[in-house]
Design a protein around this nucleic acid. Structure first.
Lengths: 122, 122
DNA sequence: CCGCCATATCGACATTCATCAATATGGCGG
DNA sequence: CCGCCATATTGATGAATGTCGATATGGCGG
């Protein structure tokens, strides 16, 4: 139990070991910390079922989807789906909102575009 | 020894189980096969050292880099670096060219942009 | 032709991860 | 207040993965 921190600061928040601060020199190679942060986001996308989850949530009406609608198309157990969703939330890609008994997930606005930018200018 | 196939068709090559062919309906959720292909690429990026490798290669002069110049900045053994490079090549992200005793790696033109697009319109 | 050098492959080991069954939590209807 | 329902958490297990040391491959200089 050390996690529960959302990754994807990518805009601010610079918890580096290196004291020489950070706005990436643009054009230069990534440092170890930046690479680790980036890899954390990619790890969240490195599973077929999580990719499908993101896709399903995004395609859902109003851009959101309840967990109960996600277990069936993936042919996965409910605990497993819950686990994957947590990983996507921790990565800063999904947002969770609990309404009554149900939990609705939606794609964090701009998150995918931000990741796309991350890839494009490695 | 089953691998050695480059991923990232993403443009053509559709080895699906599903017979109803494939240009993604655009707007609909991803199928299982598409998600698997995407996840394969993300898996290649899901390691900090591989992200740094890509970055280092891209930042190298003439956009290429010899293996011997890559082991030191990563503090990794040569076999390990070679292994990571192979994964990036198999994912269709890096290109390998052997000149004499040395192996030069370069980013496949447009590969990163293609992956970025993959992420943006999940 | 022999040995050095850069790179790739192999085998092994420790760690991480995806998945499931079982259980906990917490709201809603009766 | 009791039990059902949707969701989350826990524990366990098998598979995948990152790393290393040792070894194989293959070109180049002497």
């Amino acid at each position: 139990m050390v996690s529960m921190t959302a990754v994807l600061p990518l805009t601010s928040s610079v918890t580096e070991t290196d004291p020489s601060c950070c706005p990436p020199p643009a054009g230069a190679a990534l440092g170890a910390e930046e690479a680790k942060q980036a890899a954390l986001v990619f790890k969240a996308l490195a599973d077929p079922n999580r990719v499908r989850l993101l896709s399903l949530v995004k395609a859902g009406e109003a851009g959101e989807r309840c967990v109960c609608d996600l277990t069936e198309p993936l042919s996965l157990g409910q605990p497993t789906v819950s686990h994957h969703l947590k990983i996507l939330v921790d990565a800063g890609l999904l947002h969770r909102e609990k309404r009554g008994t149900w939990a609705y997930y939606s794609v964090v606005p701009g998150a995918l575009e931000r990741v796309a930018g991350l890839v494009a200018d490695l």
